[in-house]
């Protein structure tokens, strides 16, 4: 996977003082939000239903325009119609339900749909499809009919469809919400690989467990950024995180309770195994 096609352009999605008010709404869905999204890094977006997460996601590739403030993708403003399709090609978007995003009759046709529509020549199409399927671990399933895939495979197919446009950024709105444990860990592994290949990722989720290794976390609350920092900083004060509506993983609460019982559990023990290990060793 590659980043932006011309590397001399400064890569960054910047949201500057962005507000969005939907027609007829009493309060803004987003209220003066400033954030940046960096290639090769994952920004996790947390917050309860209705806090503005999906609104923010839709701003990143000009599916939605701000009521005030600016969204700038690699130097291009999303309100500038002249660069709209460049922005859309650069910022991939994956939604919660994979069923709504699959158009092809077989896997490889589905992945080719986006670049083919943008006029990518046939010889390049093949390598794009192969690269995208490889990145999400679906190599070998090119001729499979999408409805025969597992839910996790379907969601990875949706991600591959976005990747075939060679985006510099990928915005995912609760990509694991519909998946079982196995599908979820496969999708998370695919996202980690993409990050390592330089793709900037915005991962919207309710599950802090899914983004515990994110580079940055922003917590939205009623349209404003209530917290911005790293996952470890967010979890340093579990009570404060809960107050922000963040679902502190039960394992973190367990680790905290064990420390109160005098069991020395390390602060970076975020798995059942590492917590059990700490209890056993103490």
């Amino acid at each position: 996977m590659r980043g932006p096609s011309s590397s001399e352009e400064c890569g960054l999605i910047e949201l500057h003082e962005v507000s969005v008010t939907y027609p007829g709404a009493e309060r803004p869905a987003l209220d003066h939000v400033t954030l940046s999204i960096v290639p090769g890094r994952t920004l996790a977006l947390l917050g309860p239903n209705g806090s503005g997460k999906s609104t923010l996601a839709r701003l990143c590739n000009a599916l939605l325009l701000p009521t005030s403030g600016r969204v700038v993708v690699d130097g291009m403003s999303t309100v500038d119609e002249a660069t709209l399709w460049q922005i859309r090609a650069r910022v991939g978007f994956v939604q919660q339900n994979p069923e709504n995003q699959i158009v092809g009759t077989v896997v490889e046709e589905d992945v080719a749909f986006g670049p083919e529509n943008l006029g990518v020549p046939a010889h390049e199409l093949r390598s794009r499809v192969d690269d995208a399927l490889g990145a999400v671990g679906l190599t070998g399933l090119e001729r499979r009919e999408p409805h025969l895939l597992s839910e996790g495979q379907k969601q990875r197919l949706a991600i591959a469809g976005a990747l075939a446009l060679r985006p510099a950024y990928l915005v995912l709105d609760e990509p694991t919400a519909m998946l079982d444990g196995e599908g979820r860990s496969d999708v998370l592994a695919a996202l980690r690989r993409l990050r390592a290949h330089g793709v900037g990722i915005v991962h919207i989720t309710h599950h802090l467990e899914d983004v515990i290794d994110a580079d940055a976390v922003a917590v939205l609350d009623e349209g404003t950024v209530a917290f911005s920092g790293t996952p470890a900083e967010l979890l340093a004060d579990p009570q404060a995180a809960e107050t922000l509506g963040v679902e502190v993983p039960a394992i973190v609460v367990l680790a905290e309770a064990l420390r109160e019982h005098g069991v020395p559990v390390p602060r970076d023990a975020f798995t059942a195994e590492s917590v059990a290990e700490a209890v056993w060793r103490s």
Binding site: E209, P249, A250, V253, L254, A272, V275, E277, W280
Partner: peptide, 9 residues
């Protein structure tokens, strides 16, 4: 996860 931690222990 809380149960898994107890099972691992």
């Amino acid at each position: 996860e809380v149960v898994m931690a107890q099972l691992f222990a």
